[in-house]
Structure formats: structure tokens, C-alpha cells
Amino acid sequence: MQKNIEKAVQQSPLANIKPAPPDRLMDCAKNLGELATLDMVINVCEMQMLWEMYSQRHASDGLKPVNGNAGAGSGAEDCQATGNTTN
């Protein structure tokens, strides 16, 4: 999963990496905490971008994270599977 996340972040155009909206900061913090338990570190803006990809996959503007979902990995895997690095 770490390689997928790193690759998705590297392949994404910089225009897609933007600050997380204030109402999503706590969601980003929760997801970043989950990644930290896996010794994976990315920044809040990167987390927001990956979470948006994951949410879009599930036809949502912003899913709420749940414990144990490590949603950023899923977003990165979506990016790798489809080649889609745009939002």
C-alpha cells in the first residue's frame, strides 16, 4: 500500500494537491493517524487528494473515515488501477 500511495502522490499533477477544506481537516487527521500506525507519512494536502479519489470511487463528495479503513490506500490503488490522477 505504501508504494501505491507514494506513486499516486508523485503522479498527481500539483494542481490536484490543494489545502484540505476546514470541514475535512478532522477526517484527514484521522486518516493520517491510521497511516502513521503503518509507518507511512504523507502531508494533509496529499491525504485530502487521495481521500477525494477514494470518495469519488464511492460516488460521494466526501466519505467519513471509519477505524481501520486506511482509505488513502484505496484511493491510491484506484489511481494506479485506472491511471486517473485527476479529480
Rank of each mutant, 00 (worst) to 15 (best):
S55H: 03
M53A: 14
G62P: 00
L32K: 04
C45D: 14
R57L: 12
T37C: 05
E34P: 02
A36R: 15
Q48A: 07
M53W: 12
L50T: 06
W51H: 11
G62V: 01
W51I: 02
T37W: 08
V44P: 00
M49W: 09
D61T: 13
E52G: 01
G33T: 09
R57K: 14
V41F: 09
A59N: 14
L50I: 06
D61G: 15
L38R: 15
L38I: 05
V44A: 03
A59V: 11
K30A: 09
S60C: 08
L38F: 08
R57V: 07
Q48V: 01
M49K: 08
V44K: 10
G62I: 02
C45M: 10
L38C: 10
L38N: 09
N43V: 06
Q56L: 12
M47K: 00
L38D: 10
D61K: 12
D61I: 11
E52T: 13
L50C: 03
M47D: 02
K64M: 04
C45H: 15
N43C: 07
K64L: 10
D39Q: 13
A36D: 13
Y54R: 13
M53D: 01
K64W: 05
Q56I: 06
L35H: 05
C45S: 15
Y54S: 06
K30S: 04
G33M: 02
D39Y: 10
I42V: 14
E52L: 11
I42Y: 04
Y54E: 07
M53E: 01
E52Q: 13
E46Q: 15
M49Y: 14
S55M: 01
K64I: 09
L32R: 05
K30E: 04
V44Y: 01
N31V: 13
W51V: 02
D61A: 10
K64T: 14
E46K: 00
A36T: 09
Q56M: 08
Y54M: 10
L32A: 01
G62D: 05
Q56H: 12
Q56R: 15
V44Q: 11
M47N: 04
L38V: 02
N31I: 12
P65Y: 05
L35D: 06
S60G: 05
D39L: 07
K30V: 07
L32V: 03
E46V: 01
S55V: 02
N43A: 03
